[in-house]
C-alpha cells in the first residue's frame, strides 16, 4: 500500500548539533566517508487506498502548520509505493 512520506530537515543555515555529533562519531568507528552529516525527521502517513491529490494538499498544509517549523525547517512531501 502506498504511503505519504514527509521529510523534515533543518534549513542549511541552522546549526545541527545532533548531525555534528554523528559526523564526529563516524570516524571514531573507522567510517571516514563523511564530510558532513545532517539529521532530520521522517513521517510515514497511511491513508485508505492510494493518496489522492486532495489528501496530498492536506498533508502539505499539515506539514507547514504542525510537522515542521518553517522558521528553522524545510519539508518535502512525497508518495512512496
Amino acid at each position: 500500500m502506498a504511503k505519504i512520506v514527509v521529510d523534515v530537515m533543518l534549513k542549511p543555515e541552522i546549526l545541527d548539533p545532533q548531525g555534528n555529533a554523528v559526523a564526529s562519531a563516524l570516524p571514531r568507528l573507522g567510517f571516514t566517508f563523511a564530510t558532513s552529516v545532517r539529521q532530520g525527521k521522517r513521517f510515514e502517513i497511511e491513508v485508505v487506498g492510494d493518496p489522492t491529490s486532495e489528501q496530498l494538499a492536506e498533508v502539505e498544509k499539515a506539514a507547514e502548520v504542525l510537522l515542521s517549523n518553517p522558521v528553522i525547517e524545510n519539508y518535502v512531501v512525497r508518495v512512496e509505493k
Binding site: L10, I14, L15, P17, Q18, A21, N69, V71, I72
Partner: peptide, 11 residues
Amino acid sequence: LPGALTRNSDL
C-alpha cells in the same frame, strides 16, 4: 515571538 529555540550547541 519570532525565531525558534533549538538543541543546545554542545547537546
